[in-house]
Write a protein that binds this DNA or RNA. Structure first.
Lengths: 147, 147
DNA sequence: CCATATGTAATTTTAATATTTACATGACAT
DNA sequence: ATGTCATGTAAATATTAAAATTACATATGG
């Protein structure tokens, strides 16, 4: 598969925004510090999320906010925002099968047909997980941390 | 994600073995030619499949055969043979979130909990696809090729 | 019109994969 | 028994995809 850690960074950012967006001017450099990754990566991710209407952000200002209620944002939304076109070939396919072999000539289309099904199922699974639920799990983790 | 193209190569090999295993001494160098990848990779893959009882192979001889009927082999079997322990973190997680931030401290466990669900669902999807079905799709592709 | 922050392109770095090399081990034919 | 062929595996190298960095244009608001 090929889902990069961008999905994870995106979820991290969304939790952060939900927790602190009301009280703080959340910007890419703050998110970069929290996630431990580069501000440019953050900007790309936030920009992608913004284009899909999941967050709002203003150039020159920052002030990143959730643009939807957490229960209306699913992991599938995040995934498709980050990997437009659905992270094609999320399972890698070997690039140079032999054109002289019948299997080699057809393997690509055969695998793609099967993998398409897997990816569709995966999206359904992702659609079942809401940001709301993730935030609840986060709060639980924070609770345990204190005790 | 982290599923390398090894899964695809494995499927390619299994189709090939099914098609030619009866009539030919299939060995790693033949499979390497058909898949266009290195014999060592093939040997590693075949060895992994063999350890899970999906194929039989004899050192010094080759003669790789399916050890089960195609309808008894699922993509999940292949996947778990190739990625023992289930390709941990099939969605990548950023490695250095800030320990100074509550989100940073907890993101790892929160994501893992969610991703575990996704991976379980994925395995179920993979279990629904049998080699038999893939071979049928392959035969169809070969048929179209001729016309 | 200056300070600040995003948007984005281009380059460099890094880390994950695959390839290659090398050699030990097992099978079987002669 | 021994020579040949193929697998099993480890270790080094090369390749490639992903992320980080650099650089600069663009938008906002004081």
């Amino acid at each position: 598969m090929r889902v990069s850690q961008k999905c994870s960074i995106a979820v991290h950012c969304l939790i952060f925004i939900n927790e602190y967006g009301q009280t703080t001017n959340v910007n890419s450099s703050l998110l970069a510090k929290s996630t431990g990754c580069n501000p440019v990566i953050i900007r790309n991710i936030i920009s992608a999320l913004s284009k899909k209407g999941l967050v709002s952000v203003r150039q020159g200002v920052g002030n990143i906010r959730l643009a939807k209620e957490p229960e209306a944002i699913s992991v599938a939304d995040i995934y498709s925002a980050i990997c437009p076109g659905g992270c094609d070939n999320f399972i890698g396919i070997h690039s140079s099968p032999s054109p002289l072999c019948p299997v080699g000539r057809n393997i690509h289309s055969v695998l793609e047909e099967q993998y398409r099904k897997l990816e569709e199922d995966m999206k359904k699974s992702m659609a079942k997980i809401s940001l709301d639920e993730i935030i609840a799990s986060y709060h639980q983790a924070v609770g345990k941390e204190k005790s």
